[in-house]
């Protein structure tokens, strides 16, 4: 049953997470930034599920479920905000939203 070692899951998870963060950093489009966060969340899910199969527990899967639910909320609210920003400002790229800059 347990052929794939935990290390494989973890390395995959880290690589995916790093790609997500990198996407958040380099992406200009707000929607694309939000998509990159989905990558990072999925990476965390992989780590949970992989650790679960390694340890023979189920709590990780439950957390993965919660994360999926929260990702749905995050996507809904985040996309709502993006739509609102676009409607108010007619912009959708992050370098045009620098009002908080010093």
């Amino acid at each position: 049953m347990k052929i794939v070692p935990l290390e494989a899951y973890l390395i995959l998870s880290v690589l995916l997470f790093g790609l997500g963060v990198f996407g958040m950093i380099v992406r200009r489009n707000l929607v694309a930034i939000l998509m990159s966060t989905e990558l990072a969340l999925n990476a965390v899910n992989i780590a949970f599920v992989g650790a679960d199969s390694h340890l023979g527990l189920l709590d990780g899967q439950i957390f993965a479920l919660f994360i999926i639910a929260l990702a749905a909320v995050e996507a809904a609210v985040g996309l709502g905000i993006i739509v609102a920003i676009f409607r108010l400002r007619k912009v959708e790229s992050s370098d045009e939203l620098t009002d908080m800059g010093g």
Binding site: I46, S53, Q61, A64, I68
Partner: peptide
């Protein structure tokens, strides 16, 4: 697919459905 490989069928299914 990774979830299915790891044996977490429910999470995998939900991943497909929700995500």
């Amino acid at each position: 697919g990774i979830f299915f490989v790891a044996g977490a069928e429910l999470v995998g299914a939900l991943q497909l459905l929700i995500y």
